[in-house]
Design a binder for these strands. Structure first.
Length: 540
DNA sequence: ATGTCC
């Protein structure tokens, strides 16, 4: 079922995403947008190619670092520099253990790292980093949008039915998401249940019948909870939100999409690459799905800020703070109270994010139900890409990297047969992919979380007006602003800000998804199951 | 990515 237009070595399952070519007027490159942020891997002498789909990053600390990226993936030298700086944290850990009074624990270490093909520069640590440590926890290796992730639901609707109702759906979803239509009622007791015990906790505690809710959602949440439900001892860090005004009738936070690259999208299965797995997962051609990309809004930021404040305050006097600002927790007794506060707030934020993706999916269900008939939507997966996983004193941190377990990692659960669903969204207007993971140890069983930014934020704000207009003519984008409304469109200041933000997320600000997905497939990290194309995008 | 400060 692979696209015959793709040429490539027979060994690498070739993927030809139709994203760049299929929507005939879609801008695939932007001559006016700034270039020069990325190079091909062979132009960066710090990288060593070890295979068709693999590079290594030799470093003075001798930490094994594998990068999954074929020759066609553009890489950002600034992000390579950032990755090298991160590895110096190994030295920080040594000095911190020595300088911490009474530290007698095992030597804290960075044992392994991997970069996914979408990696690009982040705030201190590249987005697309997988980091394994022992006896040390790095909040910044998760990122401040704790449990940002993807949720995919498969509906019983066909693309034709949705396409015929797009105008009405657009109005309906605008109302649901941006005009007070979501009306998600949560009592303080329910908010606390969500933050402490996650979505299963909330739904099993006796869910209110929100629009779109199905009783089976509780079972689904339990079945699929895995790492997304983090029990927390307390939700004290978020007492304000739990008890905030609005309470039982309306919540102004939950149900928000967020900004940046976050979205909720109606898509359909355009191509099947792995018929057996696609059939098992309900991803048959023409099937409509809802895809949600969102995080913990302000909660993760608060958790992260709390941790960093504690780390700075407890930093040993006389030990210089690392230049890159990456501060680790040691697993010693002295840092335990602060670490506990962070772990609880982290768990609260992670639970909020997964719950919020559920509520965003409910809004999509409600919109579909009102315009197209019962979508009978069932979650395929909720995949966190900013999170850490703990196994004793070993931590696997993923920042902008998504789990891609294989049969072994998924044994005993609903994904044992085909491996873990890996949701890789393309840039706006482009195809997205569902893949299945193979548990490849070279990436610590991780895949990328998207196409990856190619042009830094801010830089991409310049130029690209013609391309943005072409994009907006081609694709249906629902935003808080109706740019086609004559009154709104006359507010030049408002429209300028809106266009600036949208341009930062435009297709030309991102890498092509094709070589990225081909790297995952060829490298044996995850193989494509189905390709999805957008019908309607809701942008926060 | 976030929501807010000057």
């Amino acid at each position: 079922m692979l696209n015959p237009r793709t040429s490539g070595p027979a060994r690498s399952p070739a993927v030809a995403p139709s994203a760049r070519t299929a929507p005939s007027r879609a801008p695939s490159r932007a001559p006016s947008s700034p270039e020069g942020f990325t190079v091909s891997a062979r132009q960066d002498p710090r990288l060593a190619r070890t295979g068709e789909h693999w590079l290594s990053l030799p470093n003075p600390r001798g930490v094994p670092v594998e990068i999954c990226a074929g020759a066609g993936v553009p890489l950002e030298p600034a992000a390579v520099t950032e990755a090298l700086a991160l590895l110096e944290t190994a030295g920080t850990l040594e000095r911190l253990a020595e300088a911490t009074p009474g530290y007698t624990g095992p030597e804290p270490r960075i044992t392994r790292a991997a970069l996914t093909p979408d990696f690009h520069k982040g705030a201190g640590i590249p987005i697309g980093t997988v980091l394994e440590t022992e006896h040390a926890l790095l909040p910044q290796a998760v990122g401040s949008d704790v449990n940002c992730g993807m949720r995919l639901e498969v509906t019983a609707l066909r693309a034709g039915r949705v396409r015929a109702r797009l105008d009405a759906l657009e109005r309906r979803l605008r109302h649901l998401f941006f005009e007070g239509g979501r009306r998600i009622a949560l009592t303080p007791v329910q908010r606390e249940a969500l933050l402490r015990d996650g979505l299963p906790g909330l739904l099993l505690a006796g869910a209110a019948p929100w629009r779109g809710f199905r009783p089976e959602d509780a079972d689904d949440a339990l079945d699929r909870a895995h790492a997304c439900a983090h029990p927390a001892a307390t939700a004290a860090a978020f007492a304000d939100w739990i008890g905030s005004a609005g309470g039982a009738s309306h919540d102004s936070v939950i149900g928000g999409i967020g900004g940046g690259n976050h979205f909720a999208e109606l898509q359909y299965v355009a191509e099947v690459h792995d018929p057996a797995a696609a059939h098992a997962w309900g991803l048959t051609p023409g099937t409509v799905v809802t895809m949600v990309h969102s995080g913990s809004l302000s909660l993760g930021h608060q958790a992260n800020a709390t941790a960093l404040d504690a780390l700075r305050a407890g930093w040993p006097a006389g030990l210089p703070r690392p230049r890159d600002g990456v501060l680790p927790f040691l697993l010693d007794e002295r840092s335990e109270p602060a670490r506990r506060r962070y772990l609880d707030a982290f768990a609260n934020a992670a639970n909020f994010a997964a719950g919020n993706r559920y509520f965003l999916s409910l809004a999509m269900r409600a919109g579909l139900a009102a315009e197209c008939g019962d979508p009978d939507a069932r979650p395929l997966y909720d995949a966190p890409h900013n999170l850490f996983w703990r196994d004793g004193d070993r931590f696997v941190h993923r920042k902008g990297a998504t789990p891609a377990g294989g049969h072994a990692e998924m044994a005993g659960g609903p994904y044992a047969m085909w491996g873990e669903p890996v949701i890789v969204p393309g840039s706006m207007g482009a195809s997205s992919f569902v893949l299945r993971g193979h548990g490849n140890p070279r990436t610590l069983a991780s895949a990328c979380h998207g196409a990856g930014r190619r042009v830094p934020r801010g830089a991409s704000a310049r130029g690209g007006d013609a391309e943005l207009d072409a994009f907006l003519r081609e694709f249906r984008v629902v935003t808080p602003l109706d740019h086609r409304d004559p009154v709104t469109a006359r507010r030049r200041d408002v429209m300028a800000a809106w266009r600036r933000d949208l341009k930062q997320e435009a297709p030309w600000a991102y890498k092509d998804i094709g070589p990225v997905v081909s790297s995952l497939a060829g490298g044996g990290v995850a193989t494509p199951v189905a390709e999805l194309r957008p019908l309607l995008t809701v942008k926060g």
